[in-house]
């Protein structure tokens, strides 16, 4: 199970990382603000990947305790933690040479939600039996 969970973590992490990079490109293009020195593609991919891998380990640990109720608790926990992590982005202090720090949270806010969305989207593919 752990192997499958880790694979789900890797795939959803990469997928959400790619989505975040695409979103960042669109955001930069339409709003004319550039935070690419802070939110670099490598940082985006790595943080998405790490987030989803931690989720995979978290799921595995929860399953050891909660068994059949794992999915409900995990999904709720993952979603809540993703929302809470947005606070960190709002509190981030950017280098002073960067213009319009007001627009930074709106860039990273969806990025903090993409991993959980990726996970929830791909989970039925990796664990179809649980959905039956």
């Amino acid at each position: 199970m752990l192997k499958k969970l880790l694979l789900l973590g890797v795939v959803s992490g990469i997928l959400s990382g790619i989505l975040s990079i695409i979103y960042a490109k669109i955001y930069t293009h339409y709003l004319g603000v550039d935070f690419s020195t802070i939110a670099t593609p490598v940082k985006i991919i790595v943080s998405s990947l790490v987030g989803c891998l931690l989720a995979a380990i978290g799921y595995w640990l929860l399953h050891k305790v909660l068994k059949s109720k794992t999915e409900i608790v995990f999904n709720l926990l993952f979603t809540v933690l993703s929302f809470v992590s947005i606070l960190g982005a709002i509190a981030t202090k950017l280098p002073l040479e960067l213009q319009s720090p007001e627009l930074f949270p709106w860039l990273v806010l969806p990025m903090h939600l993409f991993p959980v969305l990726g996970w929830l989207t791909l989970e039925p593919i990796f664990f179809p039996s649980q959905k039956a």
């Binding site: 709002i90 509190a91 981030t92 202090k93 950017l94 280098p95 002073l96 960067l98 213009q99 319009s100 720090p101 007001e102 627009l103 930074f104 949270p105």
Partner: peptide, 9 residues
Amino acid sequence: NTGNGVMNT
């Protein structure tokens, strides 16, 4: 510019 949008506002 304080580097943080909330603090700027």
